[in-house]
């Protein structure tokens, strides 16, 4: 699957890329129009998986794997967890008073946005053909190239992500934590599950 160029007919890969692209858009439309949060999460899952197929077709298998690991593995599961948590808590999760978006709204709005994009793309018709990657990412050397670039050219950013995750973990645990000392508990609300904070932290730690 990794060594796409040459081994699979070009027509097949372009067909696959079109199908995956349509799948990603369908998933995104499900997200926007879903009446229930649960279905929106499933829509996100479709988008994420289709996009990771596109990444493989774009000769970036490493980012495809990370996409599956972090998005499908952590983010989607975290969303599902929270949907379940809030849902079990008295089926209140879906009581959106304004209701789901009407289809005509969604389609009209997307079309408007998309037109702008297409106008841009019109100028992009002369976009250069993809340059051959200096080192194919599929080989161990390619992964090495990513690692070297990450830790040489983007060292500061790499460390900054660590700081970002620390800040995110502190903020998430603090905000979702039920009772702090020296803080009055709210009698009107039942004690929420403390796992939420742990889940937030877990997502923060799994991400890199």
């Amino acid at each position: 699957m990794i060594v796409l160029e040459g081994s699979i007919p070009a027509a097949l890969t372009s067909l696959l890329s079109v199908v995956a692209g349509l799948g990603a858009i369908a998933g995104a439309l499900v997200v926007v129009t879903a009446p229930r949060a649960f279905r929106a999460v499933m829509g996100l899952l479709i988008t994420v998986v289709c996009l990771s197929i596109e990444y493989v077709l774009l000769a970036a298998p490493v980012i495809a794997f990370i996409q599956i690991l972090v998005y499908a593995g952590a983010v989607v599961v975290l969303f599902l967890f929270v949907v379940m948590l809030l849902d079990l808590d008295g089926s209140r999760a879906e009581s959106s008073s304004r209701g789901p978006v009407r289809w005509e709204w969604a389609i009209g709005g997307t079309a408007a946005f998309f037109m702008i994009g297409v106008c841009g793309i019109y100028y992009l018709a002369k976009l250069p053909a993809p340059a051959a990657p200096a080192v194919s990412e599929a080989t161990p050397d390619g992964v090495q190239a990513i690692g070297v670039t990450l830790l040489r050219d983007y060292l500061v950013s790499f460390e900054a992500v660590a700081v970002f995750l620390l800040a995110a973990a502190v903020a998430a645990i603090y905000v979702a934590h039920a009772h702090g000392r020296g803080e009055k508990a709210d009698p009107a609300e039942p004690d929420p599950a403390p796992e939420a904070g742990a889940a937030g932290a877990a997502a923060g730690k799994e991400a890199p």
């Binding site: 774009l58 000769a59 970036a60 490493v62 980012i63 990370i66 996409q67 972090v70 998005y71 952590a74 983010v75 975290l78 969303f79 929270v82 976009l127 250069p128 993809p130 340059a131 051959a132 990657p133 200096a134 990412e137 190239a145 990513i146 670039t149 990450l150 050219d153 983007y154 950013s157 790499f158 992500v161 970002f164 995750l165 995110a168 973990a169 903020a171 998430a172 645990i173 905000v175 979702a176 939420a196 904070g197 889940a199 937030g200 932290a201 997502a203 923060g204 799994e206 991400a207 890199p208």
Partner: peptide, 29 residues
């Protein structure tokens, strides 16, 4: 990244995925 045949875009993508995950944790909290 594919267009330029350079690794930079993919490296930025990897770090951006981490950022997205952290942001969603705070949002859900």
């Amino acid at each position: 990244s594919r267009m330029y045949g350079s690794v930079d875009g993919r490296v930025m993508g990897i770090l951006a995925i981490a950022v997205a995950a952290g942001e969603v944790a705070v949002g859900l909290a």
